[in-house]
Amino acid sequence: MTGMETRTPTPLAAASLEEAETSVVPEGRSGFLPIETNWFDRLFISVVLWVALCLFWFRFIEPLGLSIWIANAIGVALAVILIRKG
């Protein structure tokens, strides 16, 4: 299989070649997230989750009377946890 991996033909697949070499760079790490991430990845994931939570809140929870600020608070808390421990 390893012999084959070096023959990856398409652009994205070929990026995987590159990754093998760059993974020595110490910035990436494994936290509780299933993938190895750097701080930028974790920030990205946090923002994505935060936005998803807010949209979900608007649609289903705010009509019940709970303020959107609760969603924001949860989002920020989640972001802090993710960035520090993810």
């Binding site: 299989m1 390893t2 991996e5 994205l12 697949a13 990026a15 995987s16 990754e19 093998a20 993974s23 993938i35 190895e36 990205f44 994505v48 998803a52």
Partner: peptide, 20 residues
């Protein structure tokens, strides 16, 4: 972006880790 990122990370990135 979310859909593409999930596809990119979920399907392409794990391959890198295992085989590299």
């Amino acid at each position: 972006i979310v859909v593409c990122w999930m596809l990119y990370t979920g399907l392409l990135a794990p391959r890198k880790g295992k085989e590299g």
